[in-house]
C-alpha cells in the first residue's frame, strides 16, 4: 500500500515538472520578445540593454528556466508588469475568488446530481428521471458562455432579481451580497458538472444494482434501504473520482464564465494578463492552476485507496 502511494506521489511530481517546462516554453512561444512588454518602444538602447541584463534575458534558456523555477518554488513570481503589484498577491486573491465560485458550483451540482441520479437509477420511468436526462444532455451540450448569457438575459435584464457582474455590490461586502452575485455564475459554471455527474451517478448506481451480490443481499432477507446502502457504498469510489475531477476543472477557473460575469477569479486573470502581455502573471496563474489540478488528482487517488478495500495491497 505504501508503495502504491509513493508511486502516485512520484508520478504527480513528474507531471508537475513537465508542467513547469511547458509553462516556461509558452512564454517563449508568445509573439514578440518578452522584453518588449517591459521596455517602452522608444527607450534608449543602453536602457534596453540594462534591463535585458537585469532580467537575465541574455542568459541561455535553460539557465533562465532554472532561475525562474527556483524563484517559483520559493513563491517568488516577481511583480506584475502592468500594475507592479506582487504576482503572488494577485494570483492568490484570484484563486480565493475562484475557490468561492467553484465551491458554489460544485456543492449545488454534486447534491442535485446525487439526488436525481440515485432516484432515476431506482425509478428509470419517473418524471425526475426525465428531468435528469434533460439536465444531463443540456448541461453537457450548452456551452457555458451561452448559458451565462441566457441566465443574465432572464434574471438580470428581464426580471432584475440578480446582479450580472462582480462579486459584491459597491460598498456592501456582506455574505448575502456575495451570495446574490454568486448564484448566476455558479449555475453557469456548474451546469456541465451537473450534467456529467447526473449521468455518472445514474449509470453507476444502475450498474451496481445489477451486480450479483445485490441478489445475495435480497436472498438473505435485507430490507430495500439496507440494500441501497450497499449499492451506494459500492458506487462511491467511482463517484468520488468523477466529482474530484470536476472540482479540479472548476478550480481551473472557467475563463468564459468569469469574464462574462466579471468575476475576479483565476480565469479572468489569465485572460487579462495575456491581453496586457503581463507574462509573469500568466505564467504564475497557469502554473498554480496546474499544481492545483495535479494535487486534486493525487488526493482523489489516495482517497480511492482508502475508499476501496480492493486497492489496498
Amino acid at each position: 500500500m505504501i508503495r502504491v502511494i509513493l508511486k502516485r506521489i512520484g508520478l504527480a511530481f513528474l507531471t508537475l515538472f513537465g508542467v513547469t517546462v511547458i509553462v516556461f516554453a509558452l512564454l517563449q512561444m508568445m509573439p514578440g520578445e518578452p522584453i518588449d512588454s517591459i521596455v517602452p518602444l522608444d527607450a534608449s538602447d543602453a536602457l534596453r540593454q540594462a534591463i535585458i541584463e537585469k532580467y537575465g534575458f541574455d542568459k541561455p534558456l535553460y539557465v533562465q528556466y532554472f532561475c525562474w523555477l527556483g524563484n517559483a518554488l520559493r513563491g517568488n513570481f516577481g511583480n506584475s508588469v502592468s500594475d507592479n503589484r506582487l504576482v503572488l498577491t494577485i494570483v492568490s486573491e484570484a484563486l480565493h475568488n475562484t475557490l468561492i465560485l467553484a465551491l458554489g458550483a460544485s456543492i449545488v451540482a454534486f447534491l442535485l446530481s446525487i439526488v436525481i441520479g440515485v432516484y432515476s437509477a431506482y425509478r428509470p420511468k419517473s418524471i425526475l428521471s426525465w428531468v435528469g436526462t434533460i439536465f444531463g444532455i443540456g448541461g453537457i451540450s450548452i456551452p457555458n458562455y451561452c448559458l451565462s448569457l441566457i441566465l443574465i438575459g432572464i434574471f438580470s435584464v428581464t426580471l432584475h432579481v440578480l446582479p450580472s457582474n462582480g462579486m459584491y455590490f459597491s460598498g456592501d461586502y456582506s455574505f448575502s451580497s456575495l451570495l446574490r452575485h454568486l448564484i448566476l455564475p455558479a449555475l453557469a459554471a456548474g451546469a456541465m458538472t451537473l450534467g456529467i455527474m447526473t449521468r455518472m451517478v445514474r449509470s453507476s448506481v444502475a450498474e451496481t444494482r445489477n451486480r450479483s451480490f445485490v441478489t445475495t443481499l435480497r436472498a438473505k432477507g435485507l430490507s430495500e434501504p439496507a440494500i441501497m446502502r450497499h449499492v451506494l457504498r459500492n458506487s462511491f469510489p467511482t463517484l468520488l473520482t468523477v466529482a474530484g475531477l470536476q472540482f479540479g476543472y472548476l478550480m481551473g477557473g472557467s475563463t468564459m464564465v468569469e469574464t462574462i460575469f466579471s468575476w475576479p477569479g483565476i480565469g479572468l486573470i489569465i485572460y487579462q494578463s495575456i491581453f496586457t502581455s503581463d507574462f509573469p502573471t500568466t505564467q504564475a496563474a497557469i502554473l498554480i492552476v496546474a499544481v492545483i489540478f495535479v494535487s486534486i488528482n493525487l488526493i482523489i487517488d489516495l482517497l480511492r485507496i482508502v475508499a476501496d478495500p480492493r486497492l489496498r495491497k
Binding site: 445475495t216 436472498a219 450497499h230
Partner: peptide, 24 residues
C-alpha cells in the same frame, strides 16, 4: 418473503466472489 429469506430458507451461489459485497 423478506422475513423468510436468509432465515428459514437460505441460498448459496456458484461464484462466492461476486456473491459477496466487495466493500464489506
Amino acid at each position: 418473503m423478506r422475513e423468510l429469506r436468509g432465515d428459514r430458507i437460505s441460498m448459496i451461489y456458484q461464484d462466492s466472489l461476486s456473491a459477496l459485497d466487495p466493500m464489506y
